[in-house]
Design a protein around this nucleic acid. Sequence first.
DNA 1: ACATACAACTTTTTT
DNA 2: AGTTGTATGT
Length: 776
Amino acid sequence: MSESGPLFDPPVPRVSDLARAQPPSGDYLHGLNPEQRQAVEATEGPVLVLAGAGTGKTRVLTTRLAHILAAGRARPWELLAVTFTNKAAREMRERIGAIIGPAAEGLRWLGTFHSIAAQILRRHAELVGLKSNYTILDDDDQERLIKQLLEAENIDAKRWTPKALAGMIDHWKNRGWTPDKLPPAEGAHFANGKGEKLYRLYQERLRVLNACDFGDLLLHNLTIFTANPDVLAEYHDRFRYILVDEYQDTNVAQYLWLRLLAQKAQNICCVGDDDQSIYGWRGAEVDNILRFERDFPGATVIRLERNYRSTSHILAAASGLIAANKGRLGKTLWTEAEGGEKVIVRGVWDGEAESRLIADEIETAKKKGRRYRDIAILVRASFQMRAFEERFVLLQIPYTVVGGPRFFERAEIRDAHAYLRLIQSEDDDLAFERIVNQPKRGIGDTTVQKLLQVARLNGVSASLAARQIVLTDELPARTRTSLSNFLRDLDRWRIEADRMPHQRLMEQVLEESGYTDMLRLDKSPTAQTRLENLKELVQSMGAFDSLQAYLEHVSLVMDLDRGPAADAVQIMTLHSAKGLEFPLVFLPGWEEGVFPSQRSMDEKGEKGLEEERRLAYVGITRAREEARISFAANRQVYGRWTSQLPSRFVDELPLANVEASSETGYYGGGPGMQQHGSRWDEAPSFGAGYSSPGWRRAQQAGYRGTHPGRQQVIEGEGRLVAVSETSASSAYRRGDRVFHMKFGYGAVTGIEGNKLTVAFEKAGEKKVIDSFVEKA
DNA sequence: ACATACAACTTTTTT
DNA sequence: AGTTGTATGT
């Protein structure tokens, strides 16, 4: 993501050169089946490709792009190709490169929704009140910002968590709602109807910080396109062909974005599979794919149904399961790979027995010549992973956990980035707050709050407020000194940032700030890892030619290219397994409440259940040769023992494709509440263990802090000062009698901007910021 | 300003 | 169970 050169029309090989270098007819069409070929060649008009699991979707996508280029219908930079993940974008670029050669470099607009939207926003930032060097907040920053807002509005952050509001705002943005367009009912759910106001305030804060969150990238694009037809027209001319991967996962905002861009040329091709829509909880709308034909009249719909991945038993098991869902577009997957192993289903006593069983079978498979890397364990939720990890460590089976806490989300990495951000932009208040006392330099909460107050009242950044406050006697001497030192360090680093490679700068900052010392002195076992992470960070910066480019990259690509995959068993969630395939797949934890997840069903009812079922479908279809499902009667979840029934999904598998080997006894006995009559148990004796307390803490009444007239007065003065800051006038005059919370009464003897010199009756002469005094 | 102790919270997570 | 944040104490 570090192409250089002008945004438009980068110097790339001409298509004529390309055509000469390639055989005119194009081998690339060779080996496609009739439907795939149709999907490649139907270049004009709207096209929907329903690509079932393992039907060669990526191949079709890449070949189609290559075909458009080779046929001379468009030049590389006239193609818009969007994916959801950086990984998918990378893979597509590579595979197109393999077909058309270096011209793939010119695919300027191949990327994720977010990275492309971010580029467009950089060009037109001023149209939504941002500068083109805006920063993209991560969700940590986002939550802290919201927390501040809630505090400022005196909303109980226990009852109304920042996380909840962040989730709502994200949801609203996914649906394409700016604060103005927010349906009134939506905001009512939060903090007694303050939802909309908070959303508005949040957006205002972002604008002041010259920042935006992920949702904004798309949303600002929509605002720009709808309010500026000329800008939209520019992109209409630009993007002659549009290609969308994983269309079933698009949310409303992304859908609107695509529709706006495609509205003129109509050359849009969406590829997806409604049966693999598993991100509904993140705002994805299966409806987008279901109603494609209505939105784009005359659309060509092509079904890819021939599966090249799995054996017929696996395919039939998956198909039988997904058939229980309603409202599908419907596909009938078939394969020529007849036979193979049936899907194995087993019940075990508890989670430990399950991990023991699977670990044993992995060892057996290994002895039979299977490689570890060909084996995957796909779980519903990450708490299921630990049992396997423990077992594998014990037996020395190599494994890797895919996903999990990501590198760039680690605290030390975020801290390091905060230093860089603050060096690059003094206005980055969130970065400032994050590291002003990290490592500890004696600038505690009280000081930070004071700083923020000054900053807010004067409408300046926290850094600037700090600069002002250290010139006064507002802070205790020690605090004042360390704050001065911190500011001095920052200034020095800013100067050096221009003179040294950014890798060196990072090292120096970590060293001089005391960050590395802090970790070196820390005896906890994690400290060592953190130091290594920071080393890795410095390493990874080498691939970028500037600090700017690096920061841009990390904010959009929260992922690091790791080295070549070792030969290890892959443990991951079902979600992160989408798009992958493995010869042998284990699917543990198929129990009611775990999978389908209780929470999904509680929150989304039947819809939630169907999405869980699609997840099960995704799981089974990852397997090429063998799929082994298991469920446990008992399991420890968050330190508590629970008992559960086999998943209903187990019963939905067609008997003909399944081989069951239940260890009987676990589910028998006891007078029963036949819950859903599983054929894996006679009469379950448990299952009543749920006690959802519905616990709600009575809200603390009162304790709204006392904010009488004083604050309002100061606020008024603060604004005044902020406005008149450059003209250096103040609301105070020499000789005014004032009151200060700490120093008491005194008389103003000097004025310099918003800094006053006051001769206090008891404390003597002090420099103070005018926000902290009132007229007496 | 910092240390310690206790309570609350846990899905899935492409960007 | 393990972490994380808040309330409390020094």
